[in-house]
Simulated scan of single mutants.
Amino acid sequence: MKNRQSIIAYILLGVFLLGGAAYYLVPFITTSKVEPINLNVPAEAPNFVKEGEVTFLKNGKVHLKIDVEIAENENERAKGLMYRSSIPDSVGMLFIFDRPEPQSFWMHNTSIPLDIMYVDANKKIISIAANTEPYSDEAVPSLGDAQYVVEVNAGFSERNNIKTGDAISF
């Protein structure tokens, strides 16, 4: 009888230990990729709302116009184009800062690759960060003092021959 109780005790101990181990090991042996959960995601992606236009100028002449949303306060600038699944190629976002200074953007919670154009106080494009990586927390700095920033779909600058040294108006 004592051997039988010992065997049952060992079996129960084994089941307990294996069950406990399985609880801790299951997350590591799953084959599906687990994406991080962001609790700040809005229920639906924001819709584009035209708030103005940006005109791109080459040698002082109108080259191209796009419709833009304007981010002119801290909350709007922090949110930017986050949570958008897409934007039309004819639109973008214009960020307006109080004064020119080095700027740095990131792609946190931004699911679409973007071109980020940094623009100085004279509205001249001083640098373009092309085809930025979605969801990246890596800093994308301006290459000088920028007072304005224009974000558009990745490849927009190349497709439309927008270059450093061109200007904008709005």
Rank of each mutant, 00 (worst) to 15 (best):
Ile96Arg: 02
Tyr135Lys: 01
Val152Met: 09
Lys50Leu: 11
Ile7Ser: 15
Glu72His: 13
Leu64Tyr: 08
Arg4Gln: 15
Val54Met: 01
Leu64Cys: 11
Tyr148Gly: 05
Tyr10His: 06
Thr164Tyr: 02
Ser111Asn: 09
Ala130Phe: 01
Asn131Asp: 08
Asp115Met: 00
Met107Ile: 01
Ala78Val: 06
Pro113Arg: 05
Phe28Cys: 06
Ser32Phe: 09
Ile29Thr: 09
Ala78Asp: 07
Asn59Ala: 12
Ala154Cys: 05
Lys123Pro: 08
Phe48Ala: 07
Val26Lys: 03
Glu138Cys: 03
Thr110Glu: 12
Pro42Ala: 03
Trp106His: 08
Val91Ser: 02
Glu76Trp: 03
Lys58His: 10
Thr31Gln: 14
Phe16Asn: 14
Pro36Gly: 01
Val62Met: 15
Tyr23Arg: 14
Gly144Leu: 00
Phe28His: 15
Leu81Ala: 01
Gly14Val: 03
Ile128Trp: 03
Pro88Gln: 12
Thr132Leu: 06
Lys61Arg: 14
Glu51Phe: 05
Pro100Met: 06
Met117Thr: 07
Ile128Val: 07
Phe95Tyr: 01
Lys61Pro: 07
Val62Cys: 05
Phe156Met: 09
Tyr118Gln: 09
Ile128Arg: 06
Asp115Val: 00
Ile8Asn: 07
Glu53Gln: 07
Thr132Ser: 07
Glu151Ile: 00
Gly165Ser: 13
Ile70Glu: 02
Tyr118Ser: 09
Ala43Thr: 15
Ala9Asn: 14
Lys61Asn: 14
Met93Ile: 00
Leu114Asn: 02
Asp98Ser: 01
Lys79Tyr: 09
Glu51Thr: 08
Gly19Asp: 06
Phe95Asp: 00
Met82Ser: 13
Leu114Pro: 04
Glu51Trp: 00
Arg159Pro: 11
Ile87Tyr: 00
Asn73Pro: 08
Ser32Lys: 11
Asn109Glu: 04
Ser169Thr: 15
Ala129Gly: 08
Thr110Ile: 05
Val49Ala: 10
Ala146Trp: 03
Ala9Ile: 12
Ile112Asn: 02
Ala130His: 10
Ala22Phe: 12
Leu57Thr: 09
Pro141Glu: 11
Leu17Ile: 15
Phe56Glu: 10
Leu81Val: 04
Ser127Lys: 02
